[in-house]
Amino acid sequence: MPVIVFAVIALTMPFWFPLVGGYAGLDTKILIWAIFAIGFDILLGFTGYLSFGHAAFFGVSAYVTGLMLLHYSANIIPAMIASVIVTTIIAVMVGFLTLRRSGIYFSILTLAFGEMFYAAALSIFSDWTGGDNGLTGLPTPELFSMPFKENNVFYLVAVLAIIGYYIARRIGNSPFGMMLRAVKSNQTRLEFTGLDVKKYKLSAFVISAIYASVAGSLMVIYEPYVATEFVHWSTSGKLVIMSVLGGVGTLFGPMIGAAFMLYFENVISAFLQEQWLLVLGLVFMFIVIFLPGGFVEGAQRLKRAIAGKAGDGNASKGASE
């Protein structure tokens, strides 16, 4: 079962990750982004709605967590719960307004909403958010008055990532997931069967936002600091790039994409110095042009090629058609 494979990979990360040039801390960040990416794939991969505003959910959640830690209590549980609740409310509102349109119009609308949150964080809420400096001076997060950092955070994130992946797979295989895929393939036809498509779309949107809020909240617990970057559209953009790199709609792919992107940004960039963005751009272009299904498609092709060499050519032909 893929969930078990993922669980093993994730939980053993502290042991094998340093061997490939990683370091403690980056593994946590990768898994946080993986949660974010799984949630995004529920929306983009299943329903085909490309949101450019997910940074808003991630960022708002991060700010709520930060403010809760700062003003209410350093305990992470109320902070996480509050972030998820606030984000869910916002997601319902944004989803209600933006899901009336599809395709590029939906993308632009979500982008506009995202930028609105960014602008608000920098202007009218800047006394709360710390403006461009980000929210600094947060206490060390605690879990029942026990300082919560480093390894503890990693295992919390890993467990949540595994649960997140499990739920996402369950959703994918459920009748509800089938509906979401139906939205992607032909929304009008689905509507003519008498179903309330809006409800399904909104559910997918909100679920995806909840994943984003969990990730945003964990980000602040992992590192008690909120950057304005979290609400900026470039965070949404990064998420889209991760999904495309990994393979949209595969759930596992976007997580690989997240791992690749962060690994590239933090480990490979040290070798490439200032050219790292350029190289990343080239990799992205290469994937979009030659491997539209991302790393997952690459892996499948490789598997087929190996299987094909073993004399099973017909099977691969059948699969590609």
Binding site: A227, F230, V267
Partner: peptide, 21 residues
């Protein structure tokens, strides 16, 4: 060497890499 990208979040990530790895 690391790249801050003139961005507090990226700078902190990069600094963490230097410190931890």
């Amino acid at each position: 060497v690391g790249d801050t990208q003139t961005n507090p979040d990226a700078a902190r990530t990069s600094a963490r890499r230097m410190i931890e790895r």
